[in-house]
Amino acid sequence: MSLRAGSAGSTPHGSRTLAFVESPVQLLNVLEWAHARSLGGGREASGTGPVPARARRAANLGATGARGAAGAAGPSAAGADLTLVVLSPTDPMTRGQLRRMVELARDEGHEVRWEEARGGPAAPFQTIGGLTRLLRGAERIVMGDPFSRYVQLLLTITRARDLVVVDDGTATMEFVAQLARGERLVRWHRKGGRPGARDLLFAPVSGAARRRLTPSASRRVEVFSSMPIEETPDGVTVTANDFAWTRARFGPPRITAGADLVGTSLVETGVVDGERYLNAVRTLARAHGATRYFAHRRESADKLHRLAAETGLEIVRPDLPLEVIARRGPIGRTVLSFPSTVVHTLPLALAGTDVKVAVCDIDPAWLTATASPRAQGFLSGVTGTARDVHRLAAVATA
């Protein structure tokens, strides 16, 4: 695969839209946004409730991703002036998924600029220096993670009057709520603790980014999301992401008789106790006959090795976001998950199939002593607001 290097001149200076992504899911949702914008998809709300979506493309491009007749005409009008900038992380699993997603983005006709944004002490300065001219010339900025310090710093440079935030999972719910309440931007699993020295040092940049993300007479802000948005900030346009691009591009999947279990990084982020989590996975797998465990890209190798040894589950390391993997298939007739983004996204990506998504609540006893005071309420909200899912009570663990 050929990637555009992050060097001067590798991206057309006339690009009207710059999209910054740091994860495979963010890149997927930029592709969904570009698809919805070009075809008028999604349901828009601006504080007045949803408006019915317009017609969708009906082409089914098959599990292999081959083009159908509707996709053969080349990139859409909205995609032609979109440049994707990948602020590459260092995690090998994330990088691998991002490279696969970049292939799909290039297939859609989008320009891609891969930045080794964390490739050493000088990398941030080189990345920002190389992007400054593009940032100042862009009319629209699309971002996947408004909590990212990298993105917040880039927002202080741009003059764009059109800002779009696409989903980065459940964090989008917290971002919109914090923006509506005028709070500082803090990830939900860190909220409640004291700001560290780096937080205090970065506070002026974070504050400036929050002000940039607040709509004004000269600045439009859109949130493109599949998550439930309960507190909409004044002036923010919320557009629903129903994964129309994913459904048109892949599937329908072959459905197997068994169950699949979706992993979570709640242990790695310090929210859930590792032993409690392992016991819960074992209990769920036995109760529902699960045979495969789709690992989250941030789950540690040691934890996954232990899960395989003690539960007998086949550990699957997806090379693409789970929404795409599930749509391509094969996928179990039942997909089991703990509270996470997929309880909102998988029912959309798998719409029209017979797959049932079931979510298991997190027992408060599973939380670590260092978990944020907001953790239980936030996770309960993720489960309680999910549509088209079957709810399971928290399983008993020793």
Score class of each variant (00 low, 15 high):
Glu44Asp: 08
Ile157His: 11
Arg333Phe: 06
Arg57Phe: 11
Gly289Pro: 02
Val176Pro: 06
Ser372Ala: 02
Ser76Val: 03
Ala326His: 05
Asn60Glu: 12
Arg286His: 09
Val221Trp: 02
Arg333Ser: 11
Glu299Met: 05
Lys191His: 13
Ala285Gly: 10
Pro330Thr: 07
Leu284Val: 05
Arg210Leu: 06
Ala351Ile: 04
Arg136Val: 09
Asp388Val: 09
Arg306Tyr: 14
Asp91His: 10
Ala69His: 15
Leu61Thr: 14
His13Ser: 15
Met93Ile: 15
Arg254Glu: 08
Arg184Cys: 07
Arg37Asn: 13
Asn60Gly: 14
Arg159Leu: 15
Ile331Ala: 05
Thr264Asp: 10
Phe243Cys: 00
Val262Thr: 08
Thr172Ser: 13
Val272Tyr: 06
Thr127Ile: 09
Leu304Lys: 06
Ile325Asp: 05
Val165Thr: 06
Arg187Pro: 13
Arg333Gly: 12
Cys360Thr: 03
Ala138Arg: 08
Gln152Lys: 04
Pro252Thr: 09
Asp242Trp: 00
Glu231Pro: 13
Gly119Met: 12
Leu278Arg: 12
Ala285Ile: 06
Gly182Asp: 12
Phe224Trp: 04
Gly65His: 08
Glu299Arg: 02
Gln97Gly: 08
Asn29Met: 09
Thr64Gln: 11
Ser2Thr: 08
Ser337Phe: 09
Arg220Lys: 08
Arg292Cys: 03
Val324Trp: 00
Ala308Val: 11
Ser2Leu: 15
Ser15Tyr: 12
Gly263Glu: 14
Val205Ile: 01
Val316Glu: 02
Pro195Ser: 14
Gly79Val: 07
Tyr293Ile: 10
Thr172Lys: 07
Leu134Cys: 09
Val267Cys: 03
Glu32Thr: 00
Arg254Asn: 13
Ala280Ser: 03
Asp242Pro: 00
Tyr150Met: 01
Asp234Thr: 14
